[in-house]
Design a protein around this nucleic acid. Structure first.
Length: 810
DNA sequence: CTCTCCCT
């Protein structure tokens, strides 16, 4: 048999390595024949040394469901320019189709086969697996390309896995994607924005490159929509002229028995806990995966579950004692009826899984439990598609998800808990059937499942703010957005809002064309549009050094995190103490100017103490997430390269304010204040459209859409203006903010204090002074921010305040 | 008194 220690080589070539452990056997020679055939067809594998056993791989390859349609795929690609492959999970399409294409000669010459993935981990892991199957090292014949990690060799790499967003970026440099002979859009049914745009753009490219081929891998539900999107045949009566076709490949997963509640539940967290306990006491061994919507729900469920397990163990111990006593009495001649021996239960290990967890704690959810222990992973949506946990036999699904939805009527995003789609529910249930038959319980009634859940999820492009998307399209030469072939057209009002913003930022001319060079540069920068504007404005304000750092820091999430040990040490209540630790960590770097300068502080401290030998320890003490910081460093380098490309000098705000003699010493307080002011002005230059003014009641009002806003509790300003400080500071009169998120209230996140005059100076096209100034001193003699709102009342403030000009119709 | 999840 082909053990994993065996070594095989292609017949007719010189075998590499030592002969010591090479034991020919009859079974290996038969399989070598089929193996050899593939290798010859590939034409590029010279000698093969594969410690993972090339033979076993060849057998596995030929057994995959997709292998049965290998020749169909290759033949259909001769006839049709676009092929929709409907392949259920486990069909092997992702790893096999690129290999088939390579073997069939689609990579001859300089040509490359590309396969896009919605996620970075998928691109890397699938590349690794494909390379292994081909007996290659990743980066040679098979490579991958994701942001900050390009593992390909130009001229040598023939099969390239990449994120969909990166291929979209490549189109800016090479609009016809000339190096690629075939592009496979994998997981297209997920409808990420990048895939959505690629679908529209490739339709154009295919007309100009008749020799090119596109493969779209999709779930059943969307296949016909993809086919008609790409089919250029207008004559429905003559299918022989079709240019796109659908091919269905069976999947290979195990059956999952799906069950529903008999009654709807008012509390799916409690229902989930009941369900897990039921599985634990009634069902055979096998791990459980529970889908809830967020961190707080997960922590609540964990507490409830651990209590229930404790109670169960106490009960079981008591039952065992009673039973033993009964048995003893029985032996002593008591003739009473004997109870059945009490059930003995496995141990249970309950683990959380969500994005805010430190990396080490995330890993715990993937570790196999000890023998005799049942693992229960309580997860957010990450476990639906982004990661796979081995050994799951039971799924408990709340049938809800937390979703960010842009609301054009309100002009901001909303983080809502909504029912999932039936497509999502199927995907979640499938997580129980990857290695053996499984069971799934949906925490809703079957009739609610059929009537209340939508068939499929709303594509991302229909629920996000569109400014970056439209800017990208403009930069790719799509001037008339109305004529672009969106598979799912975006919401008209969202388009209007986005164009309005792009115009206000100066990225678009009044005729709707991309402004040169500002619009092009903003499109090139891989950051949100307001930050791109801020970064480019820093060139004129002389603070690019600091702004590039702030821009990089704004890109990373979960900067602060508290490890389990921190939480345990600091208090009894799991969730609350963890938050307190994070709050304390944040306040350590906090400055009164707000979150952007706080982020700058964090970065400066990190670059002094957080790198090198004891760097991670320092991060641990500061409750900083080292991976997030490393990513910020990478992003900062990338942004620096863009600035260099644009010819922007790297200047420090401190350099500007420091006198010639004082280069060596630390800046004085005055100098620091002046530098901070320059930086805040620059922040306002990018974020001017997101400005808010303090009201007498202590809340804020946005200038653009007249919304009532609150400071998000993650902001240093929240910390400073509440009783958390020994002596709370007065809240700033005017602020700009990075984003609005509506959850329990409408919050501003990432906030910086500004002066209102800056809005008039930096964005005179956007803001005006009010015509009427009823009461109080003239605006030029008194700084508005210095006037106490509570003293003078809101009417005065309103009359005095800077206000938003009427938006210009586009 | 808060943090679904991806991507350039």
């Amino acid at each position: 048999m082909a053990g994993s220690g065996m070594v095989f080589w292609k017949p007719g070539t010189i075998a590499p390595g030592s002969l010591v452990d090479r034991v020919p056997s009859s079974s290996s020679s038969t399989s070598l024949a089929s193996d050899g055939r593939d290798a010859v067809a590939g034409g590029s594998i010279a000698a093969v040394y594969n410690p993972n056993s090339r033979l076993a791989i060849a057998e596995q390859r030929s057994r995959l469901p997709i292998a049965a349609v290998r020749s169909n795929i290759l033949h259909m690609l001769e006839q049709y320019q676009v092929l929709i492959v409907v392949g259920e999970t486990g069909s092997g399409k992702t790893t096999q189709i690129p290999q088939y294409l390579h073997e069939a000669g689609w990579t001859a010459g300089d040509r490359v086969v590309a396969c896009t993935q919605p996620r970075r981990v998928a691109a890397t892991s699938v590349a690794t697996r494909t390379a292994e199957e081909m007996g290659e090292t990743v980066g040679d014949l098979v490579g991958y390309s994701i942001r900050f990690d390009d593992v390909t060799t130009p001229g040598k790499t023939k099969i390239k896995f990449m994120t969909d967003g990166l291929l979209l970026r490549e189109m800016m440099a090479t609009p016809l994607l000339n190096q690629y002979s075939v592009i496979m859009l994998d997981e297209a049914h997920e409808r990420t924005i990048a895939t959505e745009l690629l679908l529209g753009l490739l339709r154009k490219v295919l007309r100009k490159r008749p020799e090119m081929r596109v493969i779209v891998s999709s779930a059943t539900l969307d296949a016909e929509a993809f086919r008609s999107h790409f089919n250029l045949n207008t004559d429905a009566s003559d299918p022989s002229k079709d240019t796109a076709a659908i091919l269905t490949v069976p999947g290979r997963t195990f059956p999952v028995d799906v069950q529903y509640l008999s009654q709807p539940t008012p509390d799916y967290i409690k229902a989930a806990v009941d369900a897990v306990m039921n599985i634990h006491t009634e069902e055979p061994a096998g791990d459980v995966l529970v889908f809830l919507t967020g961190q707080d729900e997960i922590e609540r469920a964990i507490t409830l579950l651990n209590d229930r397990v404790d109670a169960l163990l106490v009960d079981a111990a008591a039952a065992k004692r009673r039973y033993q006593q009964q048995q003893q009495q029985h032996h002593h001649g008591d003739r009473g009826r004997l109870a059945a021996p009490p059930a003995s239960y496995m141990n249970m290990r309950v683990l959380p899984l969500h994005g805010a967890l430190p990396f080490q704690e995330q890993l715990a959810a993937f570790e196999a439990p000890p023998r005799g222990t049942r693992k229960v992973v309580i997860s957010t949506n990450v476990a639906e598609a982004s990661v796979t946990i081995d050994g799951i036999a039971y799924v408990v699904d709340s049938c809800h998800v937390k979703l960010m939805v842009y609301r054009p009527d309100a002009g901001h995003e909303s983080l809502m808990i909504v029912p999932i789609s039936r497509a999502s529910a199927q995907q979640r249930a499938g997580r129980a059937g990857r290695t053996r038959p499984g069971k799934a319980l949906r925490l809703c009634t079957e009739s609610d499942y059929c009537t209340l859940l939508p068939e499929r999820s709303v594509p991302e492009i229909q629920r996000v703010e569109l400014a970056p998307v439209l800017l990208q399209l403009k930069a790719l030469g799509i001037d008339n957005l109305l004529h672009f072939d969106f598979l799912s057209p975006p919401v008209t009002e969202t388009v209007a809002r986005a164009l309005e913003l792009l115009f206000a930022l100066g990225a678009l001319e009044s005729n709707g064309r991309l402004a040169i060079p500002l619009g092009i540069r903003m499109a090139e920068l891989p950051i949100p549009v307001m930050q791109a504007k801020m970064l480019l404005a820093s060139a004129e304000l002389g603070c690019s050094e600091e702004i590039v750092t702030i821009a990089a820091m704004l890109q990373v999430q979960n900067l602060f995190s508290s490890s389990a040990s921190n939480r345990d040490a600091s208090g009894s209540d799991f969730a609350a103490s963890g938050n307190a630790v994070v709050d304390a960590a944040r306040s350590r770097f906090g400055v009164t100017e707000g979150d952007h300068l706080t982020l700058l502080n964090v970065y400066l401290a990190y670059s002094q103490h957080g790198v090198g030998q004891h760097g991670d320890k320092w991060c641990g003490r500061m409750n900083l997430n080292p991976r997030a910081m490393q990513r910020a460093v990478q992003i900062r380098h990338q942004l620096m390269r863009y600035l260099t490309k644009f010819g922007v000098a790297i200047e420090s705000a401190f350099g500007k304010h420091r006198s010639r003699n004082s280069q060596s010493r630390n800046p004085s307080d005055d100098e620091a204040t002046a530098a901070a002011q320059t930086i805040r002005r620059c922040i306002a230059a990018g974020y001017f459209a997101n400005a808010a003014r303090l009201k007498p009641d202590g809340s804020y009002r946005s200038l653009r859409y007249d919304l009532d806003l609150a400071i998000h509790p993650s902001s240093v300003l929240y910390y400073q203006v509440t009783q958390k400080l020994h002596r709370p500071l007065p809240p700033p009169k005017y602020v700009v903010f990075h984003e609005i998120v509506q959850t329990t209230r409408t919050f501003m996140r990432d906030i910086t204090a500004i002066e209102p005059e800056w809005l008039l100076e930096l964005a005179p096209h956007f803001y005006q002074k009010p015509a009427m100034q009823a009461v109080g001193p003239s605006s030029s003699s008194v700084e508005p921010g210095s006037v106490s709102a509570s003293l003078l009342g809101e009417t005065w403030m309103d009359n005095f305040a800077v206000s938003r000009k009427k938006p210009r119709a586009l």
